Amino acid sequence: MPPVSKKIKVFDSFPPASKDTFDQGALLLSEKPDEQLSLILYGQDLQNIAYIDNRTSDATAKYDKSVTVGFSFTTTQSISTEVAAEFSIEFVKASFKLTLTLTFSQQWSRAVTDTHSVEVPAGKEAYLYQGYVRSRILRHSTADDTYSWIGTTGTLYTPAYVTRNKPIT
């Protein structure tokens, strides 16, 4: 049977532990019969992952950057889901806007390394950015109908890359 698809929300900031927040996340598999888990995404942003200054060169510079794509947790957490979740992320800065729609399922349960190449012409400079979203697991205890955060904050490194000739502010 193919996985069920669900649209999930990406919150602008860290949301409260509540039923409303839980219902807008991606359901995860739990090993405990008295709990349900939901993956909550929030706080999208861009991080500068490389700066190449080729302003004083007469040759094109090529730069290969190994980057993480997928979930990265600070502890031994991982995610497991039978539901494919789709979400849209908008990365907005004063001088820049990028909208990205992603669908993830079990394949997103861990981070992988990818290589991104950038060529900078002679006399130019380049800033390379990668989009990311914070993640946290929200637990619903069915025994007492309460909601609480578990584990630590994780990061979903997206496959969204942006190259600019000036810093994004």
Rank of each mutant, 00 (worst) to 15 (best):
P2M: 13
P3D: 11
K6H: 11
K6Y: 11
K7Q: 13
K9L: 07
K9M: 08
F11G: 01
D12R: 11
S13A: 14
S13W: 06
P16R: 14
S18K: 05
K19Q: 07
F22W: 04
F22C: 03
D23M: 09
D23Y: 06
G25P: 01
G25W: 03
G25M: 01
A26E: 03
L29I: 14
L29S: 13
K32C: 12
K32A: 13
P33Y: 09
D34T: 06
S38I: 03
L41C: 03
G43Q: 05
Q44G: 02
N48E: 15
I49T: 02
A50L: 04
Y51P: 06
D53K: 06
R55Q: 15
D58I: 12
T60V: 10
A61P: 00
A61Q: 07
K62D: 13
Y63I: 13
Y63C: 08
D64R: 15
D64V: 14
D64S: 15
K65Y: 12
S66R: 14
S66H: 12
V67P: 00
G70W: 04
F73C: 07
T74V: 15
T76M: 15
T76R: 15
Q77E: 15
Q77F: 10
S78M: 14
S80G: 15
T81L: 06
E82T: 15
V83W: 04
A84T: 10
S88N: 11
S88K: 12
I89S: 01
E90V: 15
V92L: 12
K93P: 03
K97R: 15
L98Y: 11
T99W: 09
L100G: 06
T101S: 10
T101K: 10
F104A: 03
S105R: 06
Q106M: 13
Q106L: 14
Q107V: 10
W108T: 05
S109A: 13
S109C: 10
R110C: 13
V112Y: 14
D114G: 06
D114I: 08
H116Y: 13
S117E: 10
V120N: 02
P121L: 09
P121H: 09
A122R: 05
G123I: 10
G123E: 07
A126F: 01
A126M: 05
Q130P: 04
G131C: 02
G131R: 00
G131H: 00
V133M: 04
V133R: 00
R134M: 14
L138Y: 00
L138T: 02
R139C: 01
A143P: 08
D144L: 09
D144A: 07
T146D: 01
S148G: 09
S148A: 10
I150D: 10
G151A: 07
T152F: 11
T152C: 11
T152R: 11
T153A: 14
G154Y: 01
G154N: 03
G154P: 02
G154F: 00
L156I: 05
L156E: 03
T158K: 01
T158D: 04
P159A: 10
P159Q: 08
A160M: 06
A160K: 01
Y161C: 05
V162L: 06
V162I: 07
R164S: 09
K166I: 13
I168L: 07
I168R: 00
